[in-house]
Design a binder for these strands. Structure first.
Ligand SMILES: [Zn+2]
Ligand SMILES: [Zn+2]
Ligand SMILES: [Zn+2]
Ligand SMILES: [Zn+2]
Lengths: 138, 138
DNA sequence: TCTTGAACCTCTAGTTACTAGAGACGTTAG
DNA sequence: CTAACGTCTCTAGTAACTAGAGGTTCAAGA
């Protein structure tokens, strides 16, 4: 049996976060000691590892809840898991595309200002005031 | 003079958001009609455009506050503006790098599952449970 | 001028995924 | 047995909004 601190040490998930996952229904309610402290089994540790890995990959709590439900029903079709993973990939790709457009603009903005001029003719301020100077839609 | 709705229409910033910016000190408190409704000048419209553009480029409210302060002091050095823009660029690049690592993993995960199997041997679920299958640190 | 419907007002609370802190209680090594 | 550390619940705070309730004001047409 593991205390909540032991789980935290083994997974890198902070203690309040583990309690938060419990409240959100991702972690099952564990057994308690006579003094009301949580005690986890190996299954609890494994589940927290699953949650952490999914969070590290950017899945939302809601998506993880669906994935865990599926994990608990081995005979069920994995179509939902596939849909969730694919949606997450699409989301990540959309975010990358947007950030690359921002990068383009920020490179332009940062390179046209050396930080040594006055605010009145600073390219950073000018280009924030005028989207017409931008090269991309963003 | 523009009503808050006119400002919203012209900039694409929603009305509650404009009020929120006012509360955060980004928008100056505008004049009011006898009936307490906000009335903005061209300067207010310009400032909202500045804020929107900066938000679209990912700057935080705090960063924008600093940039606006600088905009209001034309004789001041633009060193701070340069520092803020550079930091924002670094931040965007770090986010892109992380998302590209996630993309690598998600492509692997999504392509090894056709969504037609059972949950018990679904690659999506397996690989979420085991970070050892990952190709990158993330 | 009156009316009516859209726009506006303030205030509270909800969103996401946590994080911090207060004050009290439990556990364990020496 | 006691000190020190771990854990408990609860509240509130974070970023940047968004939604809704309940009430007031504005503007345009009759
Ligand atoms: Zn400059
Ligand atoms: Zn732009
Ligand atoms: Zn599958
Ligand atoms: Zn991994």
């Amino acid at each position: 049996m593991f205390s909540i601190g032991a789980l935290s040490d083994r997974t890198g998930v902070k203690i309040p976060t583990i309690r938060y996952y419990e409240e959100m229904g991702l972690m099952p309610e564990p057994e308690r000691t006579a003094g009301n402290q949580r005690r986890y089994t190996q299954a609890g540790l494994d589940r927290l590892g699953f949650i952490k890995h999914a969070r590290d990959l950017g899945f939302t709590i809601e998506a993880i809840r669906a994935l865990i439900d599926l994990n608990d029903r081995p005979d069920h079709s994995c179509a939902t898991a596939n849909a969730i993973a694919t949606a997450q990939l699409d989301d990540v790709r959309a975010k990358i595309a947007r950030l690359q457009r921002l990068e383009t603009e920020l490179v332009r903005i940062a390179t046209h200002c050396d930080g040594k001029g006055r605010a009145s003719d600073c390219y950073v301020l000018t280009s924030l005031a005028d989207h017409g100077l931008c090269e991309t839609a963003h």
